[in-house]
Amino acid sequence: MSDPQPLSRPGGTPHAHHLLLYGGDEQFLAAALPFTRDGLAAGEPVFIATSRYNTALLKQHLGPRAEQVSFAPAHWHRTPAQALLAFHDQARTFQGPSRVLGEPPWAGLSDDQAREWIRYECLLTLALASTGAWHLCPYDTRTLPAGVLHAAQLTHPTLTTGTAHRPNPAHIAPEEFSAACDSVPLPGPPAHSEQFRFDGPQHLAQLREFTARLARTAALAPDRIDSLLICVDQAATTAVGHGAGGGHCRIWTTTDEVLCEVTDPHGTLNTALAGYLPPATAHLDGRSLWIIRQLSDATDIRSSTNGTTIRIRMNRRRPTTPP
């Protein structure tokens, strides 16, 4: 066990993604306060995106120094894909060392949603590598489900108590972890789903028309229909260009969502990192899945002997979005 020492920045390593398991205010503050204060003292931007309770707690203990800290606006963690983009862009904007205390909103998530937030944690390590950002991820051991706490110990390369850091022996390579998330098969489309087959580029316009009609019937907001059409068109374009030259699209609605599934029967996509990481270079192929994940509320991609399926999900009931 190392001696307590000031929290020094973890060098230029790509492992600046620390897990803090805390069981109360004291344990939280013991890590969060020095993390914040030392960052400010070093002149580094500090950004806090945590629960309302922990935000208030930190503000109270930071006193006037809280004014130097940026606190996340509401809805910062709207979807995992958008949170990853926001953190990545922010780190790049700072162009140097920065610190982030980030706690996703775990409360009230469905199993699917929790799985994607868990996956986001493992991908964050890759997305932030070389940006200079140091993320501290607090997990409340009193309230979080055992599965979330267990996964947190697999997705963070470093463990911290606030006074000491140590490498996490249980950490799994992000690509492997993300692939494991995809080993859970998606539930099949319901029998009442509507289907459209496309056999080439000449059918894309009809596919969009088919999609728009069903989305309007489901009362999806017009701006969300625009986004959905980009996603469906892109998924089908990929199938037309790379796969069998065609495929099929199934659409159905639930109380909460409109789901559009585009299947390329000959697709063999490796899904582990498909469209999850910010496009750093100009490869259009990598960006095409990224844009689908960014514009949808959630997208599940699976490959099997039946090809590659891209399931795009749009919320019918959306929380008010920030301007």
Binding site: L85, D89, D223, D226, S227, I230, P278, P279, R287, W290, I291, Q294, L295
Partner: peptide
């Protein structure tokens, strides 16, 4: 006339 162009620009930096 649609906000989706701006969203795509933003998403790709």
């Amino acid at each position: 006339r649609t906000s989706v162009v701006g969203q795509m620009l933003l998403a790709c930096g």
